[in-house]
Every structure is written in structure tokens, then in C-alpha cells.
Design a protein around this nucleic acid. Structure first.
Lengths: 335, 335
DNA sequence: ACCGCGTCTTGCATCGATGCAAGGTCTTGC
DNA sequence: GCAAGACCTTGCATCGATGCAAGACGCGGT
């Protein structure tokens, strides 16, 4: 079934090399020859063998995207954007999930046997820190989401401090004084969480406010369930609250459910703000105010940087910051 | 940087073939030799070249998964399960999105240049019908979600008629009499939609009910927004309704929002049931009653079938049905 | 008549691994 | 003592494509 260059060459009466020239659109091929070869290609249903081509050229045309879990909406939306941009750049995406498993993240970084088949790697690390990134990776790497110590890899991120500060300022501007925070993390890898907390604290401090420790709730996974539990813990704790800043939308949606179940009105009694602007937030009850990182820009930039590196660019790793804005919906302002 | 077998062989003083034997865990290698080779491998940081291996063996270790769009939660959850099972079976997943574009679906089927690099294909077709599936694809294919005309490909699906019927019967059992349906499709490819409609009609007929045509609302894309619009159209139409069966959860969540905005109480005034059991439905207001297809079984079975085919199995295409059940939550029964 | 150049085509080596089958060494059984 | 077999190792061909550099051809200029 699978024809190769040689068979096409024999059928069309030219050399293998000429067929290759036709396939790759090489300039110097006589129109008549090109025609004849093309006919043979069609007749045999010839398709270039990707493995052979890769072996010879050293390129696979594949980009690996590594995310914690696809069923987290933020990562699904990000993956969608990455796949789109990669396709536009002529690449296909291979997808790996780490489930926040440090071993798997390291594995993928090192290029385990059988998993090495890609030209570059886009990694959204959960458990890794910059220190884990090899200084001279065998293939280019772009890191997402974490501000990094200098390495040879490019980093794409948003200004988490400013974003969190903006979100918190919005709550304060709405007259909220008892602000809770859901999603703090103490692990060495919880870099974004630390930055978001920092931003929130700055906003509170500038308003002459502080957050009681009871209102700073950690979360190890950023899921709806984690948000639900954290919110319940806050409500059960009995300490007065009039606003909650969740470090991602999924947790905010979990928090909304907990508030609903406790008959706490949103935003009347408690305002809620999230982070990520996943589509689901437009349909929650009430629709969710949130920080919207420019996901498309993140994906586009990541792919761009990777493609440039694959093309041979070898400057030191860059820090690239993309924009964000605050999307105000009814979870903070009411209808 | 990248070492090859030959260099390892030279360093360890054995033949290339022996190194290969060590790498592949071939049985007959003297422990001492194995040790020496392993040391050389570690010293050089040797990793097998996947392209070369593929060329020689004809296997890439990649499975392609083709879905319409990753930001639709159902497909994201499905993709997650497929990736997990594929990894467990020693495969990596390459991901393609078709955006419901017929051209792209056909492209992928035919194995376009540069995209041919996978051992098998899992396809969740939106625009294709069985007639489009080549009789002798160059690589094995497993189709998801559509009941198929006999081809060489395996098909994994649930009993859409029975599932839709169960959902509708649940509404009727709750005393609902004016049942609307959201998500009908007239296109040749809307096979699941037709089957689900059929199941709903059977349930209605058995209860001596019919659905007024105004209450059968089409949707071309199965998104939250489509569900929102369809629900609005129903409410604006003014025809009395006390239940809505949405052909997927995303649309149901859109419908819930429309109902909320119109101050229609769920489930008191209108009961809502969805389809897919996406995680989001557990957190909607109110939590969503839905048909839960066994997504994990779908993914597992698809990967299993594909791996078997890749392994050389060549029986005619099988129809494989996986289970479903109805998950009753508050959108139909109240708290 | 010949050189030079642009156009078109080709053969050979090569990428890095594995299949095959044979070769060598060492036990084991009779 | 010797054949049979088990254990371990190896050389060569091969997968299908592309890089390289040279070869063949035609044609205008001098």
C-alpha cells in the first residue's frame, strides 16, 4: 500500500532524487517532468514517509505541549489556542498531561525514550521550579506561567502581582472591607500563588486593610471542588467576609456553589472575583468577574518563540510579558 | 550533544548491535557487558533517536486524536481520558482540532504530508459520515460517537436512543408534560442528534405526549451560547414549557442561564436535563441532571481497539457499545 | 568551434536504529 | 570425548528520504 520514492521514480522513469525534488517543490524541474512525476504520485497514492524525512532532516514537525490536566478548563482553552497557532505555523501538537506529578514533568523535560519525538516543548510547570530546567536542554523549551530565574528557555507570563492587585482593588472600590483569598500555596513551586497573594496584599495595604489569617485559604489543586471546600471552611469559620478573591475561576465557581448552598447572596453579601476568564464564568450564577490574561497572546507568543528557537535562534532566554485586563461581571457588581 | 549507538558502542568496546540489545532489554546480554554499556550510555547521555527507530520499525508510538474543539468541555474531558489510556498503553497522543471543518477532517483521514506521523487515529467526526471513511485506510481508525455503516474501522458509541429516552422518561416521571428539546440537527452528519431526538420522541409517545414543533429547537454548534439562544427563543415564543432536554450539557448550562435571566425557577417551573455529564454540571445553579456516558470506557475501549489493530488484528470493524446512566441532580428534582 | 552559464537531472553517501542469521564460547548429557 | 544446546555477541543489509556535488544538455556570445 504505502509507496515510496523509489517506486514513484520507477513508474515515472526518473531518478529518486528528481521525484524528491518534485515533492518538495524544488525550482529546477522541467514542467513536463513535474507533470509526469505528479501523475505517478497520484497513481500510487504516494505519501512521504515522515519518519524517514525526520531521520534525515532532524525535524519532526511536532511541538509538545505539557499541561497538568486537560479537564481543567483553563488548560483546555490554552491547549486549544496552542494547537491552533502551532497548526498555523506548520506544526502538530503532541499532548502530555502530568497530573501535577513531578516525576512526569521531569521525565518529559529530559526527553525520555520514545517521548523524544518533538522539535520543541511548551511546558506549564506545576511542580517544577526554574532550578529544574536543564541549562542545555536537547530541544528548545518555552515555559508558561511562572516567572523564572534566568535560563536558556523563554518564559511567557503575565504580571501576576499587578493582576491580583487590580482584582483586589476592584473589590475594595466596591466598598468591600473583609476580603478573603482562596488558593494560597506554600510549596516551592507555588510561584504564581505567591505573586497573586502579594498583589492582593498590596491592594489591601494601600487601602489600610489587612486580611485575617483565617481568610487566607490554601488550595493544593485549583479545582472547583477545592474552591468549594475552601469557601465552606471560610463560612463555617464564622469570621465575617464580604468579598473573596479566588486565584482561579474554577475555584471561584466552586466557591459560588458553596455560597449558594449557604444562602449567601452574591454579590449583595459577598462579592467574588476569579482569575483566568474561562468561558464557564460567563454562565455561572452570577456571571463571574475575573482577571482575563490574554490566552491567545500567550499561546501565540509561546509558539512563535519556540519556532524561532527551532529555527536556530540562540539568544539567552527572554522574559515575555503579555497583557491582562479585568472583566467585570455580576459576581461583584450585581445586575 | 546527541549521542548515537555507534558512539556508545565505541566507548564501551562492544558492537552497535549489543548496545541496541542493552537498550531494548534483550535477554541474552551478559550482566557485566550490560553494566559496561549502561555506564557508557549514562556518560554520553544517550537517548534513542525516535525517528530512526520509527523508520526501521514502522511504528511511531503516536496516536492521533481528532476532536472538533478542545474548549468544549466534553471533548476536553474525553481527550484527558484518551491521553491517560494511551500513555498507559505506551503511546503518546497528537492532538488535532477540526473546528467542525469538513476539509480538515478529511485531510486528517487521508494522512496529509507531514501529518502522517502516527500509528492510528481516533476520530470524533462532526461533519463526516461513514461514507467518508476510506475502506482501506493506511492506518487503523477508531470512530467515536456515531453509529456507523459497516467499514473496516471500529466504532465506539453509546445507545443514544435509549439514553435520550431515559432522560425524557425521567422528566415525564417527574410530572412534566410540556417538554422542549434543544439541539436538533438536520444535517446529514447529525446522526447523534437524530438518535437522541428519536429517543425523546419514543418516551413522549409512550406517555401519550407530543412535542409541539416550536419546542424542538435546532443548534448547529453545541455550545453554551447556542443553548442560551435556543432557550431564549423558546421563552420568547411564549409557548408553555415545563421541561427541557438539551442534547448536551454545555447547551443545558446556557439554557439555565437564560432561564435564570427570565426569572424562571428551575426545577420548580422548568426542569432541565443535559447530556454528557461534564464536571461543570455539578456546579451549575442548580446542579444539572444529565445522562452520563461512560467516558472512561469510551476512551479505554477506543485506545484498546486501536492498539489491537496496530498490533495487526484485521477483523472487520466492530460496533462497540458502552454504558451510560442517568445522574439525577437538582435541575429536575429540586434540593 | 569553443567556452561558459543557466537549466535540469542524477548517483552516492548518509541519518540512527533494528532484523536477520550466523559465529563464537561455554555447559550439559551421554 | 563429542554433539547438542544454551548463552552471548557480531556484521551486514535495510527502512525512506535528503544533502551534496557533479554530470548532461542546450544555447548564446565571441
Amino acid at each position: 500500500m504505502a509507496a515510496n520514492l523509489k517506486q514513484v521514480a520507477e513508474l515515472s522513469g526518473v531518478s529518486v532524487r528528481t521525484v524528491s525534488n518534485v515533492v518538495n517543490g524544488f525550482h529546477y524541474v522541467a514542467p513536463e517532468t513535474r507533470q509526469r512525476v505528479q501523475t505517478a504520485i497520484d497513481a500510487l497514492g504516494y505519501r512521504p514517509n515522515a519518519a524517514a524525512r525526520s531521520l534525515r532532516t532532524g525535524r519532526t514537525g511536532l511541538l509538545a505541549l505539557v499541561v497538568p490536566a486537560l479537564d481543567q478548563p483553563y488548560f483546555a482553552e490554552l491547549a486549544r489556542a496552542v494547537v491552533r497557532h502551532a497548526n498555523a505555523a506548520g506544526y502538530t501538537v503532541v499532548l502530555d498531561q502530568t497530573d501535577a506529578d513531578r516525576e512526569r514533568e521531569l521525565d518529559l523535560l529530559s526527553g525520555q525514550p520514545g517521548r523524544t519525538m518533538f522539535d520543541g516543548l511548551i511546558l506549564n510547570p506545576l511542580t517544577l521550579t526554574s532550578a529544574d530546567i536543564p541549562a542545555n536542554p536537547s530541544r528548545p523549551i518555552v515555559l508558561l506561567g511562572e516567572r523564572a530565574i534566568a535560563t536558556s528557555a523563554d518564559h511567557v507570563h503575565i504580571d501576576n502581582v499587578a493582576a491580583a492587585r487590580t482584582a483586589t482593588e476592584h473589590l475594595i472600590a466596591g466598598g468591600r472591607r473583609r476580603v478573603a483569598v482562596i488558593g494560597t500555596q506554600d510549596t516551592p513551586s507555588g510561584q504564581s500563588a505567591r505573586l497573586r497573594l502579594q498583589g492582593a496584599m498590596i491592594a489591601l495595604a494601600e487601602a489600610g486593610l489587612t486580611a485575617h489569617p483565617d481568610l487566607l485559604r490554601p488550595a493544593d489543586s485549583y479545582t472547583r471542588t477545592a474552591g468549594y471546600r475552601a469557601m465552606e471552611a471560610i463560612l463555617d469559620g464564622g469570621r465575617a467576609v464580604d468579598a473573596v478573591f479566588c486565584f482561579n475561576d474554577s475555584m471561584a465557581i466552586g466557591a459560588l456553589r458553596a455560597l449558594r448552598e449557604h444562602s449567601v447572596r452574591v454579590p449583595d453579601d459577598v462579592a467574588v472575583v476569579g482569575f483566568d476568564d474561562i468561558e464557564e464564568g460567563q454562565f455561572s450564577a452570577p456571571p463571574l468577574t475575573t482577571v482575563r490574561p490574554d490566552k491567545d497572546a500567550i499561546a501565540r507568543t509561546a509558539v512563535e518563540r519556540l519556532v524561532a528557537r527551532i529555527g536556530g535562534e540562540s539568544e539567552p532566554g527572554q522574559e515575555i510579558e503579555v497583557g491582562f485586563d479585568l472583566v467585570v461581571r455580576e459576581s461583584t457588581t450585581g445586575p
